[in-house]
Each structure stands twice: as structure tokens, then as C-alpha cells.
Design a protein around this nucleic acid. Structure first.
Lengths: 106, 106
DNA sequence: TATAGTACCTTGCATGTCAAGATACTATTT
DNA sequence: AAATAGTATCTTGACATGCAAGGTACTATA
């Protein structure tokens, strides 16, 4: 996996979660970091970037537990990108498996 | 996956291949890049690093098709590291799957 | 009033990866 | 004989990523 692939995986995480429902940044950080450790300093710039790319839109919503939340909603472009990234991720894992099994079986 | 994780994946590729048989650098580059694109500028420094860490040893062998080849052989420490990295990789993929499936099922 | 939790974001640092180039040997073509 | 292409090693410079840490600000609790 090149650094691009790693970045793509995080993009994929965010887009996959947003394809289920709108979420705000802090929520995305917590959801993703449960599964594949990641920090705020990574996700917030990522969110800004994919918004600039048109993969998501945003809207503000007040909260009674703290400051207003910035919700992210996935766009059609974002949905298509999600599918592409998912295919790339699957291909990457297959490639890794080929090497891991090849090392044991061959 | 953090940058460390990505690095770990390449370490895992190299160690997994070397656990099957000794190989030289150029050969490793070609074998790995068939599955998960990577370049010489990445692998050669990686090989130097894991040698410094004691995960592999090296020996030179002449070739009748070009310059001498530097072969890499995995050590016991390298074999143990390979198992650790493999477990981490499996955990990472499971985490990604949880997010991908969660996004569809929940 | 002070601490802790929620929620946003930016900055600086360390690291990883690649493209490109340098070196050098062998084989093939011109 | 000279030039090209393939094999094989390694280094350098530029760029991107991701994190830790810090900054801001709101709410609730002690």
C-alpha cells in the first residue's frame, strides 16, 4: 500500500459511514478510531479536502451537549468514489493475501 | 491505518516472502509490486532498516545475468516479527470490514 | 469557579514513498 | 567497437500523510 492507498482507506471509512447516515466530525473520529485508530488531526483536514472535492456537503446543527455540530452528508459523487475506493481496498487485501499465502504455500 | 501500519504492511510482505526462501532486493521489489505496487526507492531503505533491526541477514552471490546480488535471509527475530505484523494486518482488515459492513447493515 | 466533556480546527514535526538519478555489470544490437 | 537495454544496487530531493499538541468555545457538573 502506498501513502495514497492509506489515505484512500481513511476516505473510504468516512464515505462508507456517511453512506449510511449523516454524521458530524467528532462522531466520525470516534466511530473510525474504534476500528482502525485515527486522530482528529487526521480526520478534520480530510473532511475539508473531500468537501472541496465535492464528495460531501455540510450543514450546521445545534447541540444541547456542547458547541454546534458540523454534519457531513455524502453526495452522488461521493457515493461513486466510495465504490471505487472499496474496489481498490479489496484488490489491495487480495494482493496482500497472495503474498502471505504464497509465502506459506508455495 | 496509520503510516506506521502502512510501513508495517510492507515489512510484512518482505518478511513473509523471505520466510519462504532467501531473495535479493530486486527480486523482492518485483514480487511485491506484482501484488501491491511499490518502488525500489521504498524497498531498499526498508531492507537496510530491517537488517539494522536484526530481522534479516545478508550475503552476496554472483550472477551471470548482471551485477552480484545481495540476498536476504530471515532470522528468528524476523520470523517472530512476521507473526506479529500478520496479526496486526488481520486486525486492521477486520476493523475496515466492520466499518464497511456497518455502513451497509446498521 | 474550576474541571471535564463535547466539538471544532490549525500548526509543527517526524516519517514514508516515490521519481529520478548515479553506478556498474552483462548481453544484444548496430 | 559503440550504443542500447536489461539486471541490480543504492541515494537524493520533493512531497504527502498523520499524529501530537495546542487553541478556541460551549455546556454541565462538582
Amino acid at each position: 500500500m502506498n501513502p495514497q492507498q492509506r489515505k484512500s482507506n481513511l476516505d473510504l471509512c468516512v464515505l462508507a459511514l456517511l453512506s449510511k447516515s449523516d454524521m458530524y466530525g467528532y462522531e466520525l473520529v470516534n466511530r473510525i478510531s474504534d476500528a482502525v485508530s485515527v486522530s482528529e488531526g487526521t480526520i478534520y483536514p480530510l473532511l475539508k479536502r473531500i468537501k472541496d472535492e465535492g464528495l460531501v456537503t455540510t450543514y450546521l446543527k445545534e447541540s444541547n451537549e456542547g458547541p454546534p455540530r458540523k454534519y457531513y452528508a455524502i453526495t452522488d459523487i461521493g457515493l461513486r468514489r466510495k465504490d471505487v475506493l472499496k474496489n481498490e481496498f479489496v484488490a489491495y487485501v487480495k494482493g496482500m493475501n497472495a503474498i502471505l499465502e504464497g509465502a506459506e504455500i508455495l
